[in-house]
Amino acid sequence: MAAICIVLLLLLARAFWQGDIAWQYVSENLFSKSILSGVSNTIIMTFCAMVVGIVLGVIAAIMRMSDNPVLRNISIGYVWLFRGTPALLQLLLWFNLALIFPRIGIPGLLSVRTVDVMTPFVAALLGLGIQQGAYTAEVVRAGLLSIDKGQMEAAQSIGMTKLRATLKIVLPQAMRVIVPPIGNETIGMVKLTSLASVIQYSEVLRSVEDIYYVNSRVIELLIVAAIWYMVAVTILSIAQIYIERHFSKGWGRRDAGAQHATHQALVGEAG
Rank of each mutant, 00 (worst) to 15 (best):
L163K: 07
I76F: 12
Q132T: 13
P181N: 01
D148P: 03
P181D: 04
A60R: 00
A232W: 01
G127R: 08
V267P: 00
Q132G: 14
Y213C: 06
W80E: 09
D67G: 13
W94Y: 15
Q131D: 00
L71C: 06
A2D: 11
I158P: 04
V58S: 00
A265D: 07
I227N: 05
G143C: 05
N184T: 01
L110F: 14
W251G: 09
D255A: 15
G133S: 04
D20T: 12
L144W: 06
I6C: 08
A174S: 14
L167V: 10
F95R: 12
I59V: 15
R217N: 08
D148G: 07
I106E: 07
L110I: 12
V115G: 06
V26N: 06
L109Y: 10
P102N: 11
I158H: 07
S37E: 02
V52C: 01
G38A: 00
L128F: 07
G19N: 07
M230H: 09
Q151Y: 14
V122M: 14
L125K: 02
G268R: 15
R253C: 04
V190L: 01
L97H: 09
A142K: 07
I43M: 01
S194V: 03
A239E: 02
P102A: 14
I158R: 09
V267C: 11
L126T: 02
Y25V: 10
P107Y: 09
V115T: 15
G108W: 08
A225P: 02
Q24Y: 09
A174V: 09
S40E: 04
Y135L: 02
M65R: 14
I104Q: 01
L71M: 15
A258E: 12
Q259C: 07
Y25K: 10
Q24F: 07
L93F: 14
A22Y: 13
Y242N: 02
G268F: 08
I74F: 11
L81Q: 05
T119L: 11
M65Q: 13
W94H: 08
V208N: 09
Y213P: 00
Q90V: 04
Y242V: 04
I6R: 10
A87H: 03
L88K: 06
L8Y: 11
L126S: 06
Q24E: 14
P69S: 00
V70R: 06
V177S: 14
L97M: 15
F47R: 00
I6T: 10
G108E: 01
K33N: 05
A165V: 03
Q90I: 09
P120R: 03
P69V: 05
V58I: 13
I178N: 10
W17A: 15
